[in-house]
Design a protein around this nucleic acid. Structure first.
Length: 194
DNA sequence: GCCAACGTTGGC
DNA sequence: GCCAACGTTGGC
């Protein structure tokens, strides 16, 4: 699982350049700070959309409850992000190949939902921007169960969550959202819990 | 804590 | 390349 680290300035190169050979499993690899790839000093102001077709909205999972993994507590909930200096963290510990590719495809300032996984109440807790910095809490917590209900319904009606990756690609810890998915989920904030 | 659904590893 | 064994993710 992704494990945001409590430092904003971690050097964390993307791991070995061409993925040479296989990694040993104990290596804490997949250091993929979402900040890394675009860290050139000058702004990327013009056309953040230079690669059309690339997703610009994301969902990133992290565990808000304590759990030891090789003796290290992986707990990192949205409150932990908020508590960081500059409310910014380095998102590392992502090993899955596809997830890392998404991490690399991210551009600064893109928006991402902070998803709480492997916990009492899984769901979307807040908003971040890629860097990775806290933006705000959701106006209300959006539980997984509610998203799932919409997903099921939308499969029949063709609604916005019909293909949401959260349900179609289980276990992917970094995932893209379409604009429609992102907007729909934001709209749920204004609704009564279902 | 259980276990389903995956992803990874490694022998063949 | 196949596939069984194993490890991980993550809901419940």
């Amino acid at each position: 699982m992704p494990r945001p680290r409590k430092r904003s300035a971690a050097a964390a190169g993307p791991d070995k350049k061409g993925l040479s050979g296989k990694r040993t499993k104990t290596e804490n690899s997949g250091e993929a700070s979402a900040k890394v790839e675009n860290s050139s000093p000058q702004k990327i102001s013009d056309s953040k959309n230079c690669g059309k077709n690339l997703s610009s909205h994301w969902l990133m999972k992290s565990e808000p409850e304590s759990r030891l993994e090789k003796g290290v507590d992986v707990k990192f909930g949205i409150e932990d992000l908020k508590a960081q200096p500059k409310q910014t963290a380095c998102w590392d510990g992502v090993r899955n190949y596809q997830a890392r590719n998404y991490l690399r495809a991210m551009k600064l300032e893109e928006e991402a939902f902070f998803y709480h996984s492997n916990c009492k109440e899984p769901g979307i807790a807040g908003l971040m921007k890629v860097d990775v910095q806290f933006v705000r809490m959701m106006k209300r917590f959006i539980p997984l169960a509610e998203l799932k209900t919409y997903h099921q319904a939308h499969k029949g009606t063709g609604g916005p969550l019909k293909n949401m990756v959260l349900f179609t690609r289980q276990r992917l810890s970094i995932q893209p959202l379409t604009q429609e998915e992102f907007d729909f989920i934001l709209s749920l904030e204004e609704k009564e819990p279902s």
